[in-house]
Design a protein around this nucleic acid. Structure first.
Length: 741
DNA sequence: TGCTGGTGGATTTTT
DNA sequence: TCCACCAGCA
C-alpha cells in the first residue's frame, strides 16, 4: 500500500498530473493541503524531481511551515531544500540577491503601513498637497491598487488625463516612489512589483529562476492579485509546470486587489490547463456544510460546484440572539467552559468575528473568567511604539539611507533635539539632494544649526559607535548595547508607570525573538544578519504566531481564519451593519456584499463539529450604542438546520421585523402614551426640536428615517431613529442635526 | 523645546 | 472610544 492509496480519485488525479498547467478547484475542507503535500512527495519520490526545483507558495508563513513539515513526514529527506514560502518572502529573497540591477542597494528596508503613512505625510508636505482634501490613507490605497495592477507612476499620469483628482494622485505617486528610492526602501507592494520588473528586464535572472523552479505550486490562488499572477506566470513561463489551488467561493481579499479573474480565466491564460474539482468535504458535518452551501448559493457569478460530505448530520447549528454584546460574550465564555468541563480542550474552540474591535469584550470576559485565550491580529507586535523605536535603531545601523528610521529615533529617547532643528537638517539635506543621515554627518554645512550642533554630533557619534559594534558583535549583544547606551528602558521606567511595564515586557520579547532568529540561522547554517532579521520581522503576520499545541481559545477575524479549522466555532456579531458591514450594505456595488457573503462562507466552513452563530440587539461601537438587526446571512441558513436553544427561545427576533413593523409599534406606543411620554414631548418642544416620535427626519449621512424614541439625557436629548438604510441609531439631538421632512 | 488639554475625526478586513 | 493634531503655555 502506498501513501497515495488514502486519497480519493480526484485527489489522486491531481497528485499524478505533474506536468503542464493544472487548476485545482478545491472546496472548503476538501483536503487541498493533503493534495499539495502528496503531490510534492510524488514529484520527489516517483518522478525523481530534485526538491531544489520545487517552489510552493502559500499565503502565510505558518502555512508554509506546516506544509514543509507535512512533506517532511511523507518523504523523509530532501524536504528542507524545497522552497516553501509566501509571495512576499519569496520576492524578498530574490530581491536581496539582485535588486542592485534596478538601482537599489541590496540591503533595502521594507516599509510597513505605519512607515508608509509617515512617508506619505512627508510627500504631501513636500509637493503641497492638502491632506485634508487628499487623505494619506486614500492616497496610499490608490497607489497600492495601482501597484497591484502593475501601473507605474508614468502610466498612472497618462491614464489621469482630464481627471484633476487622478492627476494629483499621479503626482503624489511619482514623488512617493522617488522618496522610497531615496530611502532605499520598498513598501509591501513593491516587493512584488520590483521582482516582476527584475524578471522582465533581466533575462539572465529570469532564466535562472525559471530553471530553478521547474515545478511551481500556488495555494489560496483565489486571493492572488495581478502582480502576483504576473510573477508566477513569468516563473512558470518556460516549463509551464504550474499547479494552482483555490476556491473562488473563498476569495475574500478583493479589497486588497485580489483578482478573481485569475481563477476564472486560468484556462484561457494557460491553454492546455487541466482542471480538477475536489468536491468532497472531509471536515464538517453535513448540517454545517448544508448551511454553508445555502448561504453561498446566494452569490451569482461563481464557478459551479457542489460540495458534499459523507460525514453524519451532526449537531444542529446553534443560533442565539442576545440583548447586548456583553450577554453574547458571557454566553460564549460559559459555553466554552461547559465544553471544557465535559472534556474538550480550550484550543478546540475558536471565536470568529468581522472586526478586530469585537475582540475586546471577549478578552474582558475571559480575563475575568480565567479562561486561557489568544487573540490573533489587532495591533501587530512589531507595530508597537517601543518595538518600532528599537527596530528603527537597527534600521539606521543597517541602512543609513532610511531617513524615516533616523528621524524616528533622533530624539527618542529625548535628547533635546526639537522639530525646528530636525526641519533645518531636512531642508539642508533636500537642497543638497543627500540623505538625512548624510546631512547630519556634515553639520558645519547646515546654516542656523547653532546650539543643537553638539547634540546632533553626539547622536551621530552614537550611531557610528553602534555601526562599529554591529560589525563585530552578535545581534543580541547589539540590541542589548542599544538599550543600554540609549537608556531606552530606563526612560520608560521613569515615564508613566501604567503601560511602561508592558512595554518593557515587549522589549524583552523582542530580545528573545532576536535570540530565536540567531538560533534558527545556526540550525540552517546561515549567518544571522541585521537585514535578515529586519526582513523576517517585516513579513510576519500575527497568525504565524498561532501555536496549535498551546491550550487556549482562539479569537480572530474571519479573514485570519482562512485555511484553519476547529471542532467548535462561534461566529459572533452576526448583525446587519457589522457583518455584513455597513459599508457593504450601503455600497452600490453588489460585488461588495458578495465578498462579505464569501467571508461568511469561510467562517461557517471552519467548523468541524459544532457551529454557534450569535448576534446582539444592542452593541457599543465607537462609544455609541447601535441597534442592529440580525444578519441577513443568518436568514439564508435554512431554519431546519438551526436550533435556537430553549433558554433563549422567546428572545429570538424573527426575520419579519422591518421598518414598517417597527413604525407600527411606535404608533401603538404613541396612541397609548403615558404621562411620561407626553412630558417628553413638551420638553422637546420647549427645546425647539421641530420633530417628535413618529416623525420622519433626515440625517446628513444616514439619510431618511423614523424617530422612534426621544429621551432626556443630561444637557441634551437622545434621539433614536430607525433609518431606512442605515438601521437604528441613537444620537444626541445637537450633534445629529436632524431635519424634519 | 516640550507638555498639556481640547477638539475633531474615524474604522472593515492584511501580506 | 480612541487617537492624532494643534494651540497655548512653561
Amino acid at each position: 500500500m502506498s501513501i497515495y492509496d488514502t486519497l480519493n480519485e480526484q485527489q489522486r488525479e491531481a497528485v499524478f498530473h505533474t506536468d503542464g498547467p493544472l487548476l485545482i478547484l478545491a472546496g472548503a475542507g476538501s483536503g487541498k493541503t493533503r493534495v499539495l503535500t502528496h503531490r510534492i512527495a510524488y514529484l520527489i519520490e516517483e518522478k525523481g524531481v530534485n526538491p531544489w526545483n520545487i517552489l510552493a507558495i502559500t499565503f502565510t508563513n505558518k502555512a508554509a511551515g506546516e506544509m514543509r513539515e507535512r512533506v517532511d513526514n511523507l518523504v523523509g529527506f530532501g524536504s528542507e531544500s524545497i522552497w516553501v514560502s509566501t509571495f512576499h518572502s519569496t520576492c524578498v529573497r530574490i530581491l536581496r540577491r539582485h535588486i542592485d540591477r534596478l538601482g537599489y542597494d541590496n540591503n533595502f528596508t521594507i516599509y510597513d503601513a505605519d512607515d508608509q503613512k509617515t512617508l506619505m505625510k512627508d510627500v504631501c508636505r513636500l509637493i503641497d498637497i492638502d491632506t485634508k482634501v487628499y487623505k494619506e490613507r486614500n492616497l496610499l490605497s490608490a497607489i497600492s491598487s495601482a501597484k497591484d495592477e502593475l501601473i507605474t507612476p508614468a502610466e498612472y499620469e497618462l491614464n489621469a488625463a482630464g481627471d484633476y483628482g487622478k492627476q494629483k494622485i499621479a503626482k503624489v505617486y511619482l514623488e512617493y516612489e522617488k522618496q522610497l528610492r531615496a530611502n532605499n526602501a520598498l513598501d509591501f507592494d513593491d516587493l512584488l512589483v520590483k521582482t516582476v520588473q527584475l524578471l522582465q528586464t533581466q533575462p539572465d535572472v529570469l532564466e535562472y529562476y525559471q530553471e530553478r523552479f521547474r515545478y511551481i505550486m500556488v495555494d489560496e490562488y483565489q486571493d492572488t492579485n495581478t502582480v502576483q499572477f504576473k510573477f508566477v506566470s513569468l516563473l512558470a513561463g518556460k516549463y509551464k509546470n504550474l499547479c494552482v489551488v483555490g476556491d473562488d467561493d473563498q476569495s475574500i481579499y478583493k479589497f486588497r486587489g485580489a483578482n478573481i479573474k485569475n481563477i476564472l480565466n486560468f484556462e484561457q491564460e494557460f491553454h492546455d490547463a487541466k482542471v480538477i474539482k475536489l468536491e468532497q468535504n472531509y471536515r464538517s458535518t453535513s448540517n454545517i456544510l448544508n448551511a454553508a452551501n445555502a448561504v453561498i448559493s446566494n452569490n451569482v457569478g461563481r464557478k459551479d460546484k457542489s460540495l458534499w460530505t459523507d460525514n453524519g448530520e451532526g449537531e444542529k447549528i446553534q443560533f442565539r440572539q442576545f440583548d447586548t454584546a456583553y450577554d453574547e460574550a458571557d454566553f460564549i465564555a460559559e459555553d466554552i467552559r461547559k465544553h471544557v468541563k465535559d472534556g474538550a480542550a480550550y484550543n478546540e474552540h475558536a471565536i470568529l468575528y468581522r472586526t478586530n474591535a469585537q475582540s475586546r469584550l471577549f478578552e474582558e470576559r475571559f480575563v475575568a473568567g480565567n479562561i486561557p485565550y489568544k487573540i490573533v491580529g489587532g495591533i501587530n507586535f512589531y507595530a508597537r511604539r517601543e518595538i518600532k523605536d528599537l527596530l528603527a535603531y537597527l534600521k539606521t545601523i543597517d541602512n543609513g539611507k532610511d531617513d524615516l528610521a533616523v528621524r524616528r529615533i533622533i530624539n527618542v529617547p529625548k535628547r533635546g533635539i526639537g522639530l525646528t532643528t530636525i526641519n533645518r537638517v531636512q531642508e539642508s539635506a533636500l537642497e543638497r539632494e543627500i540623505g538625512f543621515y548624510e546631512a547630519l554627518q556634515g553639520l558645519d554645512l547646515i546654516p542656523n544649526i547653532g546650539r543643537s550642533a553638539g547634540k546632533l554630533d553626539s547622536f551621530v557619534a552614537l550611531m557610528e559607535y553602534f555601526k562599529g559594534f554591529a560589525a563585530k558583535e552578535t545581534l543580541s549583544d547589539l540590541m542589548k548595547e542599544i538599550i543600554e547606551k540609549t537608556g531606552y528602558v530606563e526612560n520608560l521606567e521613569a515615564e508613566d508607570k501604567e503601560d511602561a511595564q508592558s512595554r518593557i515586557e515587549n522589549i524583552e520579547e523582542l530580545q528573545s525573538k532576536i535570540a530565536a532568529y540567531e538560533e534558527s540561522c545556526a540550525d540552517m547554517d546561515e549567518k544571522p544578519t541585521l537585514s535578515g532579521f529586519l526582513e523576517e520581522v517585516a513579513l510576519v503576520a500575527d497568525i504565524d504566531s498561532l501555536d496549535e499545541e498551546q491550550d487556549y481559545v482562539i479569537l480572530m477575524t474571519l479573514h485570519s481564519a482562512k485555511g484553519l479549522e476547529f471542532p467548535h466555532v462561534y461566529l459572533a456579531g452576526m448583525e446587519d451593519g457589522l457583518f455584513p458591514s455597513y459599508m457593504t450594505i450601503t455600497s452600490d456595488d453588489n460585488e461588495d456584499l458578495e465578498e462579505e457573503r464569501r467571508l461568511c462562507y469561510v467562517g461557517i466552513t471552519r467548523a468541524e463539529k459544532d457551529l454557534t452563530v450569535s448576534c446582539a440587539r444592542r452593541r457599543m461601537i465607537r462609544g455609541e450604542t447601535q441597534y442592529n438587526k440580525m444578519s441577513r446571512f443568518l436568514k439564508e441558513i435554512p431554519t431546519e438546520l438551526m436550533e435556537t436553544g430553549a433558554a433563549f427561545e422567546e428572545e429570538v427576533e424573527m426575520p419579519t421585523q422591518n421598518a414598517y413593523f417597527q413604525a407600527k409599534q411606535v404608533f401603538k406606543q404613541k396612541a397609548f402614551s403615558t404621562g411620561k411620554t407626553a412630558k417628553q414631548f413638551t420638553v422637546t418642544k420647549e427645546k425647539g426640536l421641530d420633530y417628535t416620535i413618529g416623525d420622519r427626519v433626515k440625517h446628513m449621512k444616514f439619510g431618511e428615517g423614523l424617530v422612534t424614541d426621544i429621551t432626556e439625557g443630561g444637557r441634551d436629548y437622545e434621539v433614536t431613529v430607525q433609518f431606512d438604510t442605515a438601521g437604528v441609531k441613537k444620537m444626541f439631538a445637537s450633534f445629529a442635526r436632524l431635519q424634519k421632512v
